[in-house]
Amino acid sequence: MLSFRFEKLNAFQGKSAAIKRPREITVFSFDDSHKHHLDGRSLRYYYPPFVQVPYITEKNRIDLSQGFETFIKHDDSVNLHLNPLLDTIQHYEEQTGAKLKADILTWRGMMTKIFIAPFDMFGEFEMNATCYQNQLAKAAEWKSKTQRVSSSLEKMQFWGYKFETLATLPKQWQDCTRGEIEGRDTEVVNNNPQYCSVVRTGIGNHTIVIGGEVDAVEGCKPDDPNDSIPYIELKTSEDFRGDDDFAAKKFERKMCRFWAQSFLLGVPKVIIGFRSKDGHLQRLEEWKTMDIPSFVKNRGMRTWDGNVCINFAAAFLDFLKQHINDEGTWTIEQKKGDKQILLSKISDEYSRDIVSTKFREHRATFQFKATCEAKTQE
């Protein structure tokens, strides 16, 4: 068993490691039944909910608990591993004839866990990895130590999905009916549909392909693939008074995760719906993703440092590439409160849960165009 220790963060301070702007390669979707589709059918469009408007009195503020009884919740006990991402990459390669090369292939959630590890006091995860065609693939979800989600936590999770439903439309505003726009408060909340972006980015010495869910787009996607896409990340958080330092510090720590999730996929804006303790939407706040670390450093409580997160991730990926160098199966684990991430080889055989047989056969038999490699503009 190997250990990547980080009791002291001095080694990760200073100017951040080299980073490359995330560039979208392709997209995929899950539909209302969580069936995978190789297109963007589940893309939602941001249109703010009716909050902070003069004709809604305080007692009629939006109740995020409305519709909890009819919530259609995705069954996350079924682990799809990397398969949707690999199937999407296979389709992309078949359509373009170009092999998508990268040092690391993973889900955005995995990289987020690593990014925030230096400052996450409750960090806890377990994921698997292997080396395939000189590419490090990471899969599997972090394993929760809690067997049962409390009813109060379940309702708080619903509030986030409810906010997403209230803040988005299935089509651009001009193509929606008045009923679709004004009836979002009674729309059945279903978290099966997802729109996912696949991007290539770089951190330190590593080129990374990441897949992750995008909540919505503001306006529309640009025609020029080199232009930044106005995606947004939607979040909810409990509102607090300006003089409540404890609550402000708690929120600032949450912002570390908000920033990392958006930064990794190249999502330029985070929109936060602040709610009351009992789940009533109070107000909206917009943050530019790239402004969040500087706010924490210059005007906040300095509970975390974006450069440290980037340097930590770059160093940890160096560690993985050094030690995961065959097609065995490895476990990457952090226990709650530990200032170390453990790396253990659990099998000399590769796990089909990480890189599927279907994808392996595709890479072994597909005739790629000579000297053709998928590229993104740096």
Score class of each variant (00 low, 15 high):
residue 196 C to Q: 10
residue 305 D to N: 15
residue 31 D to G: 06
residue 142 W to R: 11
residue 300 G to L: 02
residue 349 E to V: 05
residue 181 I to Q: 06
residue 83 N to W: 12
residue 95 Q to D: 15
residue 6 F to Y: 15
residue 330 W to V: 12
residue 206 H to Q: 01
residue 260 A to V: 06
residue 328 G to A: 05
residue 345 K to P: 09
residue 377 Q to V: 14
residue 264 L to H: 04
residue 158 F to R: 09
residue 322 Q to G: 02
residue 154 E to L: 13
residue 135 Q to A: 09
residue 351 S to Q: 05
residue 309 C to H: 09
residue 38 L to A: 04
residue 370 A to M: 08
residue 27 V to H: 12
residue 143 K to A: 12
residue 233 E to I: 06
residue 165 T to I: 12
residue 135 Q to S: 12
residue 301 M to G: 03
residue 312 F to H: 09
residue 258 F to G: 02
residue 110 M to S: 06
residue 275 R to Q: 08
residue 342 L to A: 11
residue 168 T to F: 05
residue 366 F to C: 03
residue 2 L to T: 10
residue 172 Q to K: 15
residue 230 P to L: 00
residue 287 W to G: 00
residue 300 G to Q: 01
residue 73 K to R: 14
residue 71 F to T: 04
residue 163 F to I: 14
residue 327 E to V: 04
residue 107 W to L: 14
residue 121 M to H: 07
residue 75 D to R: 14
residue 172 Q to H: 12
residue 120 D to S: 10
residue 5 R to L: 12
residue 90 Q to I: 03
residue 173 W to E: 14
residue 37 H to E: 02
residue 68 F to C: 02
residue 45 Y to E: 07
residue 253 R to I: 11
residue 263 F to R: 11
residue 263 F to D: 07
residue 11 A to G: 01
residue 191 N to I: 13
residue 370 A to T: 11
residue 306 G to R: 07
residue 268 P to W: 09
residue 147 Q to N: 13
residue 322 Q to H: 10
residue 153 L to T: 12
residue 118 P to A: 05
residue 191 N to G: 09
residue 87 D to E: 13
residue 85 L to E: 00
residue 315 A to L: 08
residue 35 K to W: 00
residue 115 F to C: 04
residue 113 K to S: 11
residue 233 E to W: 11
residue 220 C to H: 05
residue 94 E to C: 12
residue 256 C to Y: 09
residue 217 V to Y: 00
residue 106 T to P: 01
residue 236 T to L: 04
residue 261 Q to T: 06
residue 312 F to E: 06
residue 169 L to Q: 03
residue 26 T to D: 01
residue 378 E to F: 13
residue 310 I to L: 02
residue 131 C to P: 00
residue 131 C to E: 04
residue 112 T to E: 01
residue 251 F to R: 09
residue 45 Y to F: 15
residue 320 L to G: 04
residue 306 G to H: 07
residue 247 A to W: 02
residue 340 Q to V: 13
residue 312 F to S: 06
residue 319 F to Y: 14
residue 189 V to W: 03
residue 108 R to F: 01
residue 47 Y to G: 09
residue 330 W to A: 09
residue 10 N to E: 14
residue 235 K to T: 03
residue 95 Q to M: 15
residue 294 S to E: 09
residue 97 G to H: 14
residue 306 G to A: 07
residue 50 F to K: 14
residue 6 F to A: 08
residue 226 N to E: 13
residue 35 K to D: 00
residue 236 T to Q: 05
residue 143 K to P: 06
residue 315 A to S: 14
residue 355 V to L: 04
residue 86 L to C: 03
residue 294 S to W: 06
residue 373 E to W: 09
residue 329 T to C: 09
residue 49 P to V: 12
residue 43 L to I: 14
residue 325 N to Y: 05
residue 144 S to M: 08
residue 315 A to N: 10
residue 299 R to Q: 15
residue 301 M to T: 09
